[in-house]
C-alpha cells in the first residue's frame, strides 16, 4: 500500500508512532564528532522528520541499537545469577538498503550460527521494525551494487520511504502500522527504487581460485605497514559482530558483580590474545587478511551471501586512508593473474 505525506502529515505520523515505538534514525549532532567543529552523523532517537539526516552517510550504523556496544548479560550475587532485565520497548529503525541487509548478516551470526540462538540479540531484534530509506544515488565510497545489497525484498521492511522536497512517499507492508499510515496520508501507487550503479565497483575474487597460497602474498605486507590497528573499520562496520565477555566484581562486595559483553574487533590489539599471553595474529597485515577473508569469503562459504554489504564506512573512517574496496579489487587481480 502506497501513501503520500506532507511534511506535517509525516510529523504527525511520527508523533503517533512515538507513543508505541522508540524511533531511531541517522541524526546530525552539531560539533560532536572527534575533530572539533565537525558534526557527528550517527543513530539516535528522533521525534520529527527534520531531525533525520539524509544528506550524509552516518559514521556508525544502526547495529548498535540491536547489538549494543556494551551489554550486561547477567548479574551475580553470592551464588545466584539474574539475567539482565529485558525491556518492553519496541523500535523503529530508519536505514538504507545496505544497512537493512547488514541485519540479515547479523541475524545469521546471532540466530543461525550455532545450536543456540543468542537470546540477548533475539529479544531486541524481535521488537524492531525497519523503515527503509530509499537510496538511489549513494555516496562516494559505496559499493553495495557489487555486494548485491542495494535492494531489499518487500518482506524485509515494514515501510519503504522516499524523502521528497515537500514530504514523504512510502509503501507500508506491516499490517499493524497500515492503519496509522492511512489515517494521516493520501493513498498513492508506490514502487521502491534502488541504486543500480555505484561510483565504486568491486570485483569479487573467484572463490574456487582462492587458496591458502594468497595468505602469503605481499598484498598483506603493504597493510602491515599502513594499518595502525585503531579498529575504526570494525566499529563502523554494520556487520562486524565479534564481542568479548568480561566480568566485573563490584568494589563494595566482591561476591557480586556482572558479566557483560562488548564489541571486539579483529584489527584491535588483544583480539587474538590467549592464556599465557600468546597472540597468533600480531601482524596488522594478517589482521587485514583475516577481516577481508571473513567479509568476502568465509561467511559466504557458510551462508548464502557475503558478509560485507559495501556500505563503505570502513573507507570513510580509516585514518590511514586504507580502502577496503580497493583491497578486494587488488585481491581479485592477484587471483586472476595467478598468485
Amino acid at each position: 500500500m502506497g501513501f503520500n505525506f506532507s511534511e506535517n502529515g509525516f510529523n504527525q505520523l511520527l508523533e503517533s508512532l512515538n507513543q508505541d515505538y522508540q524511533i531511531y534514525a541517522p541524526v546530525r549532532k552539531k560539533n560532536k564528532d572527534s575533530f572539533s567543529a565537525n558534526d557527528l552523523i550517527t543513530y539516535d532517537l528522533i521525534k520529527s522528520l527534520e531531525e533525520i539526516e539524509l544528506t550524509v552517510k552516518s559514521k556508525y550504523s544502526a547495529k548498535e541499537i540491536v547489538f549494543p556496544i556494551r551489554e550486561t548479560l547477567f548479574h551475580f550475587v553470592e551464588g545466584e545469577q539474574f539475567i539482565a532485565s529485558d525491556t518492553d520497548d519496541k523500535y523503529i529503525i530508519f536505514l538504507r538498503p545496505c544497512d537493512r541487509n547488514a541485519f540479515k548478516r547479523l541475524d545469521k551470526i546471532f540466530l543461525e550460527n550455532g545450536p543456540e540462538e543468542d537470546i540477548y540479540y533475539k529479544r531486541l531484534r524481535e521488537n524492531v521494525k525497519f523503515f527503509v530509506i530509499e537510496c538511489t544515488s549513494g555516496f562516494d565510497s559505496c559499493f553495495c551494487v557489487s555486494m548485491e545489497s542495494n535492494t531489499v525484498e518487500a518482506e524485509d521492511y515494514a515501510a519503504f520511504l522516499r524523502f521528497e522536497e515537500n514530504g514523504v512517499s512510502c509503501e507500508v507492508n506491516d499490517q499493524d502500522l497500515a492503519v496509522e499510515f492511512s489515517s494521516q496520508a493520501e493513498e498513492i501507487k508506490f514502487e521502491p527504487q534502488f541504486i543500480e550503479k555505484n561510483k565504486v565497483e568491486v570485483k569479487l575474487p573467484d572463490r574456487e581460485k582462492l587458496t591458502n597460497e594468497v595468505f602469503e602474498h605481499q598484498l598483506w605486507t603493504e597493510y602491515s605497514q599502513r594499518c595502525i590497528a585503531c579498529g575504526r573499520c570494525n566499529t563502523s562496520c554494520p556487520t562486524c559482530s565479534c564481542f568479548t565477555v568480561k566480568d566485573v566484581l563490584y568494589d563494595e562486595n566482591k561476591k557480586s558483580g556482572e558479566r557483560f559483553r562488548r564489541w571486539a574487533g579483529c584489527h584491535i590489539d588483544g583480539f587474538t590474545e590467549m592464556a599465557g599471553g600468546h597472540n597468533f595474529r600480531e601482524d596488522y597485515g594478517d589482521r587485514m587478511r583475516y577481516k577481508t577473508m571473513h567479509k568476502i569469503y568465509d561467511f559466504g562459504e557458510r551462508f548464502d551471501f557475503d558478509m560485507c554489504v559495501g556500505c563503505g564506512r570502513c573507507d570513510d573512517v580509516c585514518p590511514e586512508y586504507i580502502s577496503f574496496s580497493k583491497c578486494i579489487n587488488k585481491l581479485s587481480t592477484i587471483i586472476e593473474e595467478g598468485v
Binding site: K32, S34, S36, K59, I69, R232, N234, I268
Partner: peptide, 27 residues
C-alpha cells in the same frame, strides 16, 4: 573495565576523543 580520568592531571588536550574508535569520548 572502564576508563577513569584524573581531572587534576588532565590538560584537556582532547587526544582521548581523537583516539576513540566509537566516540565513547564525547567532545
Amino acid at each position: 573495565e572502564r576508563v577513569l580520568r584524573d581531572e587534576k592531571r588532565c590538560i584537556g588536550c582532547g587526544e582521548c576523543i581523537l583516539q576513540c574508535p566509537t566516540n565513547a569520548w564525547e567532545r
